[in-house]
Design a protein around this nucleic acid. Structure first.
Length: 953
DNA sequence: CCGATCACG
DNA sequence: GACGTACGTGATCGGA
């Protein structure tokens, strides 16, 4: 012990960090590992898959954690005190499978071999022991980690107690509990008492599941409160179930409530951590033939015995041994990732990738915006677990805000990296090699980065897009989510290497070891996702959508993003100034009308001013209890002659236009290009549409005159003009085709005014001299059809009573019964399959179509009705977009495609080519279905040309 | 970080 | 008949 350690100064050091206690749920792990891991037997035939999983897990936990106390807790016999409360508790559990039985004893042996304390007690479950020690340790001020994924333990989570899922290696916190139970850890017991648990035979209240239970507990706070006030429940069935089964619920609560005062013989301090002992561990591993673990453990023991003074040898035999150990272990996270620092090494990786014919590729950069990003490094993966990272732009540690004196100081490039130009020269032939498939995750990003260095990636696959065609609408398609879903692997998250919030650094400041672990894993995971998802896509017969629509769209959209759109900054500046002045004036008037100043932008304050202070008619709304102050409410009040809401409507409009558009668009102009580059998301929507972000250029105002002024700021470069081409009524045309409505199809073929015709046929009035109000009603119904019409929605849209809306809808369906048939067929298809289809075969998933809650179910039914229409329209415009570049090139036209706004394409065209380009694009768009599909209705695209976007419409 | 609001198709 | 609504997005703001 050094002198410093005993110095008085040290004794006055800040309070030591709280003790950390690890409580491992041994019994829970056995069952889960047994089912999660493939069968595995010792040479003598003894099954050991759960034992191996357990041993791996325990050794990893012990080596990764800083815990001072560690214990594994086990169940004993199957009967315990809960059977006295409820004899059927866990009664229907089948006996454990025969292959599992010998593993119970072996796992206790493994625990002993790992030198970790263990405990079991007659009459109690492991969960009760964990609850008891967790309480004890927390009261002593310690931090507790419960290693288990058992939902029954989630009730213990709190400020000092957390959980860790040992198989997914993922923390379970209040958020995960909330996701599972709909309530926080403190209310889990109440929810379980109501919902019961079929696997443990906890009865609960019949007819109440987790969702309903969470809802009830959120409202009433506790089981007892709920039972006391059960009479208030509106739904008769639910009310009766609660009243009749109150006692069953109370028993259930006692069953799920863990006993945290088991009379344990020893305190948690008896579980002081002990390091693995070679004399115990190695014989055990040999006996069970756990060779990969053995190799790893021997390496660790060897390293330790080599002495602390010796410098670890990272090359030679040790390296090879580590690689060998990793090859047989779980694919990622082990040591087969390589940092490439020389051209020769990179050349070897490139050659190996060529040999394979496929390589996963990923870039690391300084920004999530590829138009502002610089390349920092790239990673390659050529087989599972075999990946490398090639740094080309890493810099010294984080900038200290001090002067960088030395030339090679903190801010300069790290030495020994391959020079960027050399690395690019080596990688370009691979990325452009037509015989090597490049696999990316959101490859449009990497393509954009490499395009800036004059490298075109082809051929390619994109795991994000493959996932999207497989599961669009079912879940997200980010790499982290896909990895957990398909590989059961939690990736290193960007925040974990680059930090978070203010302390976040750009990737060029991430140390090389961390960068390697993160970047190589990304490529590795991408490759493994491809191995899982591509066969699935082929088996599910979804390859056509991917190969004919989503994949070829990637370079097209990339080119649009890179082209960007020109903005006239002066127009925006002047508008901002104009809006600012008018906002100040409106503010004054509004405050005067209110009698005092308040924040007009706060719906809460506005509601209080209008409804509490001024006494305007209107009511509370919504879950939050705040007044509704939406535009519809304000319009109603304004129509009654109230001045303040009318002014607020003006204020809201100008304030929105200024903050969302005139101010922020100016800031989005790229300094390098002088243009605005949006990012189109290819896998974001549930219907197949694109979306646009940073900035969103798909919601630039047009509907009001003030808004249109903003579109005037979207301009073409000198000598060029903007060309807008948009589909006319595409979704309604598709509805006519898909529902096979003869009159509607006929009307579209004749090119007549569809809304007027609908009005005429539904309301029985002649088209000639029609009241515009009648046509407006028909138009609203037609829109409603596309949205999965409801009387409520139509009534709200038209401002008429619901009964009247109902009558319109009935009249419509009577006239066009095919539409009703289409809607019923679509709903049935969605219920049977969980998704609906576009005409091109894209699946749009509608999770929740079978939801027991009628509101949510109706919601999903309307979405199911809408998705084939919206989604087919999306497929069609995507097909057109893919064909446009080649059509332009063939015609030797220079036009650039800039934006897509769902049914519109915007181009920048040399003035002299405007007419030809318009005709060409119109043709491509109108024929976009062919040859895959022939519609019974014509598609019509309309063109407009001007020097700004507003006038091009 | 979520809900309300509002811009677009 | 319950439930609570038109379909699909993204950005901004206020307020916990």
């Amino acid at each position: 012990m050094s002198a410093a350690k005993t110095s008085p100064a040290d004794e006055k050091a800040p309070a030591k960090k709280p003790d950390h206690v690890f409580l491992i749920d041994g019994s829970g792990y056995i069952f889960r590992a047994f089912h999660a891991l493939p069968p595995l037997t010792r040479p003598d035939g003894t099954p050991v898959n759960a034992v191996l999983g357990f041993t791996n897990m325990l050794l990893k936990l012990v080596s990764d954690t800083d815990a001072e106390y560690i214990a594994v807790l086990f169940d004993t016999a199957r009967k315990n005190y809960r059977n006295d409360i409820f004899p059927d508790y866990k009664a229907h559990r089948p006996p454990p499978p025969p292959e599992l039985i010998p593993q119970f004893a072996l796992i206790r042996e493994a625990t002993k071999a790992c030198n970790v304390p263990q405990l079991e007690m007659e009459g109690f479950e492991a969960d009760d022991l964990i609850a008891t020690y967790a309480r004890q340790a927390a009261e002593a001020g310690a931090q507790v980690t419960i290693v288990s994924s058992d939902k029954d333990l989630m009730q213990l989570i709190g400020p000092q107690v957390s959980m860790l899922d040992p198989i997914k290696n993922r923390p379970i916190g209040p958020a995960e509990v909330e996701e599972k139970f709909g309530v926080g850890p403190d209310k889990v017991v109440e929810v379980q008492a109501l919902a019961g648990d079929s696997s443990d035979n906890v009865p609960g209240v019949p007819g109440i599941g987790v969702k309903t239970a969470a809802e009830l507990i959120k409202t009433y706070g506790s089981l007892e409160e709920l039972l006391a006030r059960a009479g208030e429940i509106k739904q008769p069935k639910r009310r009766e179930a609660l009243q009749q089964n109150a006692e069953l619920a109370r028993i259930s609560r006692r069953l799920v409530l863990l006993k945290n005062d088991v009379p344990v013989k020893q305190p948690f301090t008896a579980f002081a951590r002990r390091e693995p002992d070679a004399a115990l561990l190695i014989p055990f591993l040999e006996e069970n033939q756990f060779r990969s673990v053995l190799a790893r453990v021997q390496g660790q023991f060897a390293k330790k015995s080599a002495g602390d003074a010796a410098v670890a040898d990272g090359s030679g035999k040790g390296h090879a041994a580590a690689k060998q150990a990793a090859a047989s272990a779980k694919p990622t996270g082990e040591a087969a990732y390589e940092l490439v620092m020389t051209e020769a090494e990179l050349a070897r990786w490139v050659a190996a990738a060529r040999e394979k014919g496929a390589v996963a590729f990923d870039t690391e950069t300084t920004s999530i915006d590829p138009m502002q990003a610089s390349l920092v490094g790239f990673s390659l993966a050529i087989e599972t677990g075999r990946a490398c990272y090639v740094p080309v732009g890493h810099r010294g540690g984080p900038p200290q805000g001090q002067l960088d004196l030395g030339g090679d100081g903190e801010g300069g490039l790290l030495p020994n990296q391959i020079p960027l130009a050399k690395a690019l020269a080596l990688i370009k032939p691979l990325l452009e090699d037509p015989s090597v498939l490049k696999i990316g995750q959101n490859i449009k990003y990497d393509m954009t980065i490499m395009a800036a260095h004059d490298i075109a990636i082809a051929p390619y696959d994109d795991t994000m897009l493959i996932s999207y065609v497989l599961a669009g609408g079912a879940h997200g398609h980010g790499m982290d989510e896909l990895s957990e879903l398909h590989l059961n692997h939690r990736t290193i998250h960007y925040e974990e290497v680059a930090g978070t919030g203010k302390a976040q650094v750009t990737f060029d400041r991430v140390p090389l070891d961390k960068a390697l672990a993160y970047a190589a894993e990304d490529a590795d995971v991408t490759l493994r996702l491809h191995q899982v998802l591509k066969p699935q896509m082929l088996a599910e017969r979804l390859a056509t959508v991917y190969e004919t629509i989503d994949r070829p769209l990637v370079p097209v959209v990339m080119a649009m993003e890179r082209a960007g759109v020109r903005l006239d900054r002066k127009v925006l500046q002047d508008l901002s100034a104009d809006f600012a002045a008018r906002l100040i004036e409106l503010e004054k008037q509004i405050h005067k009308l209110a009698g005092h100043e308040f924040n007009i932008g706060s719906p809460k304050q506005l509601g209080e001013v209008m409804f509490d202070e001024m006494g305007l008619g209107g009511g509370k709304k919504g879950k939050t209890g705040a007044y509704a102050t939406g535009a519809d409410v304000l319009e109603e009040l304004a129509a009654q002659g109230h001045d303040l809401p009318a002014r607020v409507l003006d204020w809201r409009q100008l304030s929105k236009l200024k903050s969302t558009y005139t101010d922020s668009l100016q800031e989005q102009i790229n300094a390098r290009t002088g243009r605005v580059h949006t990012s189109f998301a290819l896998a974001a929507t549930s219907t197949g549409r694109l979306s646009s972000t940073d900035p969103n250029l798909q919601n630039i105002p047009i509907r009001t005159e003030e808004g249109r002024k903003i579109r005037r700021a979207f301009v073409a470069e000198k000598g060029w003009v903007l060309l807008s081409v948009d589909y006319s009524q595409i979704e309604l045309r598709l509805a006519a085709h898909m529902a096979e409505v003869p009159q509607l199809k006929e009307a579209f073929r004749e090119g007549i005014d569809i809304h007027a015709m609908t009005a005429s046929q539904v309301f029985g009035v002649p088209v000639k001299g029609m009241d515009p109000m009648v046509r407006r009603r028909a138009k609203a119904i037609n829109f409603g059809i596309i949205y999965g019409i409801s009387a409520f929605g139509l009534a709200a849209q038209l401002g008429i009573p619901q009964g009247e809306a109902r009558a319109y809808i009935d009249a419509y369906f009577k006239r066009y019964p095919e539409i009703l048939g289409y809607m019923d067929r679509t709903k049935k298809f969605a219920r049977d399959h969980g998704y609906v289809l576009t005409l091109f075969g894209r699946r749009c998933h509608v999770p929740g179509i079978l939801d027991k809650n009628p509101a949510r179910r109706s919601f999903m039914e309307r979405a199911a009705i809408n998705a084939p229409l919206q989604g087919t329209a999306a497929d069609i415009i995507k097909r057109a977009m893919i064909r446009v570049p080649a059509a332009l090139a063939d015609a030797k036209l220079q036009a650039r495609m800039l934006l897509q706004v769902h049914d519109e394409l915007l181009f920048e065209v040399p003035k002299a080519e405007a007419k030809d380009t318009a005709a060409l694009v119109k043709k491509v768009m109108e024929r976009a279905c062919a040859p895959a599909l022939e519609l019974d209705v014509p598609l019509v695209a309309e063109t407009g040309t001007a020097d700004n976007w507003a006038d091009a419409h």
